[in-house]
Design a protein around this nucleic acid. Structure first.
Lengths: 175, 175
DNA sequence: CACGGTAGGTTCGGTCACTGAACCAAGAAG
DNA sequence: CTTCTTGGTTCAGTGACCGAACCTACCGTG
């Protein structure tokens, strides 16, 4: 959103959160990071975001402490972006937004989320409807819903078709 | 964000939610509406938003079913914007974002939220830490926090300094 | 060593949304 | 008849976003 000037005058935690994650694409980048996407190229093909914007968002999120840039191989040097604890704390907000988005008319649910240790579906804010408490991200299982394209073009979407845990790194198998 | 083209290709409830509430200012308008702000002029002075943008957002939110335009006096004809049930369902998402925003370093908490019938503070997603369940918006009491300017310029901010329930209409007493 | 491929960017011109200020209109108040 | 209030619309300027092209290491192959 390029907020700075205006939102800064808002005396509100919501406005300050939006200063960090309120710009276009930013929350979708965080969503993908929580789904296990880590590499520049994977974000790129999965989101369909302009390269310059992606670079700016990754840098801003890293500066905000939501992502962490980490060298995963030396030769050739390659970095990946991993969500930090601070980034994981955005899960309830993303989950609530997603739950709200499901209520938009004329659409089928895209993904289902389950507490893997007890099998119950998640509530609107990521709590377990079975055992009641907030579910650690590692115990959240993501399953494809009926609204999802069964044969997507990009390899990241294909990898995300499998039932999988949150945060589990996406591996894009070569075509 | 003016999403349309790009986000439409995203197969994700979060992306679809952001199509509706992801543009600049939109979530802050909804926040104000949940706080009890209803009139064009009150949104204007409280948010410091350009008039054209406010008009566009109010119209878009009304079209999306988040707000409802309602005639509150006939002569002269005056309308107010009231949150619908669909709009109230955004509260968990806003609450989660606000809770996350409180964790941004270098800031004091702006507002506190309490379950008025039992006095316990609200958790990160609007649940009651005392009695456990999700709290109906009418039972949420909002109190000023230490980070809040004790003598703000605009009448809406002054009205929101008082402890008050969510959704309770803001009355801007004449100066 | 030339050549092509991959990962991760930067640069650049065009477009579109946001911004602030000015203007407009219907009624009420004086 | 003039001014004030409420709720807007119009308009020029600016800045963010867009897609495409280009750049830089490095690797693998012949």
């Amino acid at each position: 959103m390029a907020l700075g000037k205006d939102y800064a005058t808002q005396e509100c935690s919501i406005a300050r959160a939006l200063e960090v994650v309120g710009e276009r694409w930013t929350l979708l980048v965080v969503r993908d990071a929580l789904y296990g996407v880590r590499r520049y190229n994977d974000f790129l093909v999965h989101l369909g975001i302009p390269r310059a914007v992606l670079a700016a968002r990754l840098q801003a999120l890293t500066a905000a402490g939501v992502l962490e840039k980490r060298r995963y191989q030396e030769s050739p040097p390659r970095d990946e972006y991993v969500v930090t604890e601070r980034g994981r704390e955005l899960w309830p907000a993303l989950r609530a937004l997603g739950a709200w988005g499901r209520g938009i008319p004329g659409t089928a649910p895209m993904r289902e989320f389950r507490h893997v240790t007890c099998g119950s579906p998640l509530g609107v804010v990521g709590e377990c409807t079975g055992c009641g408490g907030l579910v650690p991200l590692e115990e959240v299982e993501m399953l494809p819903g009926e609204g999802l394209d069964p044969d997507p073009a990009d390899p990241v979407s294909r990898a995300l078709l499998e039932p999988r845990r949150l945060l589990q790194p996406v591996v894009t198998e070569p075509v």
